[in-house]
Amino acid sequence: MATNLVVRNVEEEVAAALKQQAAAHGHSMEAEHREILRAALQRPKRRSFVDVLLSMPDVGEDADFERGGS
């Protein structure tokens, strides 16, 4: 079931940019607004730095990563 959403106090520049973007995509402002909201909310969540580190494979020995002397 669809819900109506009212957005108040939108800056003139933002409304103008939305109108321009909607026209470029061949949409109404309302359809463009829906698409922007949908895309923003369906983005994958960012992984934390810890999650990225934990996902790295455990390869090599400590000596493999030591700096070479000159």
Rank of each mutant, 00 (worst) to 15 (best):
M1Q: 12
M1P: 11
M1H: 12
M1L: 12
A2N: 10
N4Y: 07
N4V: 04
N4P: 05
L5T: 10
L5V: 12
V6Y: 03
V7W: 09
V7M: 09
V7K: 09
V7G: 03
R8Q: 05
R8C: 00
N9P: 00
V10K: 02
V10C: 08
E13M: 05
E13C: 04
E13R: 12
E13H: 13
V14P: 00
V14N: 00
V14M: 11
A16L: 08
A17H: 10
L18I: 11
L18H: 06
K19H: 14
Q21P: 01
A22V: 06
A22M: 04
A22Q: 04
A23K: 06
A24D: 14
A24S: 15
A24F: 08
H25Y: 15
G26V: 04
G26T: 03
G26K: 04
H27L: 14
H27Q: 15
H27V: 02
H27I: 06
S28F: 00
M29Y: 01
E30F: 00
E30V: 02
A31M: 08
A31R: 01
E32N: 08
E32Y: 15
H33K: 11
R34E: 14
R34N: 10
E35I: 12
I36K: 11
L37D: 06
L37C: 04
R38Y: 12
R38L: 09
R38S: 10
A39E: 15
A39W: 12
A40E: 13
L41A: 11
L41I: 09
Q42V: 08
R43L: 12
R43D: 05
R43M: 08
P44D: 04
P44C: 00
P44S: 01
K45A: 10
K45W: 02
K45N: 04
K45F: 01
K45H: 06
R46K: 09
R47G: 02
S48L: 02
F49Y: 07
V50P: 04
V50N: 11
V50K: 14
V52Y: 11
V52D: 02
V52K: 06
V52N: 07
L53G: 06
L54A: 13
M56A: 11
M56W: 03
M56R: 05
P57R: 04
P57I: 01
P57W: 00
P57N: 03
P57Y: 05
D58Q: 13
V59D: 10
V59C: 06
V59L: 11
G60C: 01
E61L: 12
E61V: 10
E61C: 04
D64I: 01
D64M: 03
F65N: 08
F65C: 09
F65H: 13
F65D: 10
E66C: 07
E66L: 10
E66R: 11
G68A: 14
G68E: 15
G68K: 15
G68W: 07
G69A: 14
S70Q: 14
S70C: 09
S70R: 15
S70L: 12
